[in-house]
Design a protein around this nucleic acid. Structure first.
Lengths: 119, 119
DNA sequence: CTTCTGCTTAGACGAGTGTCAACCTAGACT
DNA sequence: AGTCTAGGTTGACACTCGTCTAAGCAGAAG
């Protein structure tokens, strides 16, 4: 657990919207994996279930049965989200709990922000 | 041009944040392709260049030389963005101009929004 | 009409991805 | 010790993706 490759986190100062300035290649390279991780319906749902969980964390034992997929497959998707820096995992006794990383989510949301005026 | 498969657009009413409610499978299925399209560094930069262009549109002739890739490859990435519903293309004379679709961008940003209070 | 330029399409190839069955590890409990 | 359960890991498979070269198409300009 927690031996993910430590996704290159962008300077914590959050990102100017895509619409405001051209993204530097480095930033694109660092953030694309997070978008990529969200680019699968199963992972998008997993992310949603984790982020919206009552106490901010969800047990794998609750996530797995929600899909028509085998355990290993869900585990694989969770690992992808972990390696993208979107969630963290913590084992407590028998169960493993996943928690969303709000910082990165905010960073992505900030990138996509569009000034309502322009549109 | 414009013969893209018309990405299933979610009801225009925008999305409750991921953190608020569990995403329905249909919504995840419809929105995942957009995230997937942004999940490549080249496309993320292309999207940024288009969205931040002076008049809201960018000419392919300006986009292509910004990368160390062949024309067809850039064209392929632009098609992916088009089919994801993130941009639209318009030919004017010799050149083709791409424009960002603010609606979908806002939808994605809304999904990732995190209430500052919680976190 | 012919030619040139800007962009897209078609086909091919190696690399990556989603899925599964089989196996393995970590804790809890006898 | 042994056993059970929750998850993760491995290895395999078909499929998709990013990239290229080569060919095609649409306007503009001879």
């Amino acid at each position: 657990m927690s031996k993910s490759p430590a996704p290159v986190l962008i300077a914590e100062s959050c990102c100017p919207p895509l619409t405001d300035a051209r993204i530097p290649a480095d930033t694109a390279l660092a953030l694309a994996p997070a978008f990529k991780a969200l680019g699968d319906p199963v992972r998008l749902q997993l992310m949603s279930m984790i982020a919206s969980a009552p106490d901010g964390e969800a047990c794998v034992c609750d996530l797995t049965p929600a899909f028509d997929l085998t355990g290993p497959t869900i585990s694989h998707h969770l690992r992808t989200l972990r390696e993208a820096g979107l969630v963290t995992a913590e084992r407590r006794g028998t169960w493993v709990y996943y928690r969303a990383q709000a910082g990165l989510m905010r960073q992505l949301a900030g990138l996509l922000a569009v000034d309502a005026l322009v549109s």
